[in-house]
Design a protein around this nucleic acid. Structure first.
Lengths: 223, 223
DNA sequence: AAGATTAAAATATCATATATTATTGTCAGG
DNA sequence: CCTGACAATAATATATGATATTTTAATCTT
């Protein structure tokens, strides 16, 4: 039997999504099928299936009969994404604090520890593992809300987080020590089951990250 | 040139989605490609693209290498959907009341009027146009939040509304006069720009609809 | 009746073919 | 030099058939 239970479809999906989030496929650029076929080594059918999935998730646009394009970025979209992520993540955090058991606490402590180690390395100037760092960031935020007991909520949040991440990667700004302090504070408030404080900190965390991202870019307001 | 700008892909997408929401395709049932091919008169490629879209929206499940299934229903899922719809719709309603202009008010009045007419007919016992009635219900709720100025939010809400609608159709219970009063009350509060009241009424509206739906079913708790 | 083996069905993927639609380039007329 | 009509080209949407792999069903054995 095979090592991976991955199908060609699912791996291409992951690759393309990753390339969109991390900017290898630039916002607004045309996704020509021939090009993709060569680049991802998959058949036309498989690629179209993949692109359809990404389209309905909002990472790709597909104007009728004109093929596929990487979803463009805009200030308005960033604002919407940030606000929605705040709404969903704060809500989920409240539920998670309410429902979380010892197992949840354990995973959270572990996730924060991993993230914290990586943050130290980033601070020290080691920029070589940005992608891994972002994954730990992802995992930390996920660990906080993991106990919310709503698969639907976690799924929506995951997509929003990825969309937000794309904007972060676009400007690749590291808020360094500030973000580290924010992560620690959220972590503490969450473990202390102080829902109101944890939610306020999370809101501020996302908001200030967004403002920081916004300040680092210079797009026009139109597409 | 053609009347419709619809492609085969988009029409099959709509048809299948509609059949899932309105129960023509039963929850949990296998979606055999040959069967679909015949039923929707589309090619395998097109069908797979469609099913991939519906999978990422959560109307279809696609366990690796075992084909496609209509997403099963469960009490837990209904609860999650109802809560998420409440969260997003109340949030959007607040924004919409804040931003809405005269144009928005006009559309809202129209939508409520259309819905109200249909509600009278349903009350009178005319059950022949359930689907149209539900569309007007949809349009009314959409009209309320239309001015929220967030495409992402509207898009998430639309999907959640459809998922919630599937549960409603599953038991096809009409809360009759109660729902009419609730709609009218929400409408009034919204036009009066009374955000707090409008949100409270909306929350109660969704919650009581959900309880009503829940009370009408007798699924086990497991998938 | 449980487990193993084989046969049949269905899926995932690919390669091609065709019709339709978009895009580009050319050229005449102003 | 610009504009619009028209042809040429490229790309997409859709369909079909083929193959390898995997599931599922059926059969046999103990």
């Amino acid at each position: 039997m095979n090592d991976t239970n991955q199908t060609v479809g699912s791996t291409t999906y992951q690759k393309i999504k990753r390339d969109i989030i991390f900017g290898a496929l630039r916002p607004g650029s045309k996704l020509k099928l021939d090009m993709l076929k060569e680049r991802y080594d998959a058949s036309l059918s498989t690629l179209r299936e993949t692109l359809n999935r990404l389209t309905s998730e909002g990472f790709v646009e597909a104007p009728a009969q004109r093929g596929f394009f990487v979803k463009p970025v805009s200030v308005e979209d960033l604002e919407e994404i940030a606000n929605l992520r705040t709404l969903l993540e704060c809500h989920a955090l409240g539920l998670s604090i309410q429902n979380g058991d010892a197992e949840w606490e354990g995973q959270l402590v572990a996730a924060h520890h991993k993230l914290h180690l990586m943050e130290q390395r980033m601070l020290a100037g080691d920029e070589s593992q940005v992608e891994l760092w972002k994954r730990y960031d992802w995992e930390f935020h996920l660990a906080m809300i993991q106990a919310c007991k709503s698969k639907n909520l976690l799924s929506l949040h995951a997509t929003l987080f990825d969309k937000y991440l794309r904007y972060q990667m676009l400007v690749l700004t590291n808020r360094g020590e500030v973000a580290i302090r924010e992560h620690k504070a959220m972590f503490d408030a969450t473990l202390a089951r102080d829902t109101a404080t944890a939610q306020r900190l999370l809101d501020e965390h996302i908001r200030s990250g967004w403002q920081h991202t916004l300040a680092s870019v210079s797009w026009g307001t139109s597409g």
